[in-house]
Amino acid sequence: MKKSLLDILRDPLDKAELDLEVDERDGDEIVEGRLIGTETGEVYPIEDGIPNLLPPDMRDE
C-alpha cells in the first residue's frame, strides 16, 4: 500500500484514524508493517502490501 492511503483508511472498530509503522518498503510501496488504531490501539498487519483491516473477531491468527 502507499502511504497516501492513510488519508482514507480508518480503524474498522471506531472509524478513527490509523498510525503507520513500516518494516519494509519497495519504492513508495509499503510491503510489510502495521496500521494501529489511534484510539483503540488495535494492530492491523500489512501483509505483502495489503493492509488487513478485518475487525479482530474476523481475523484468523
Binding site: R10, Y44, I50, P55
Partner: peptide, 10 residues
C-alpha cells in the same frame, strides 16, 4: 484492502 463489508475500514 482486506476488510469486512459490515464495518468498512474507510
Amino acid at each position: 484492502i482486506r476488510g469486512d463489508a459490515g464495518t468498512l475500514p474507510l
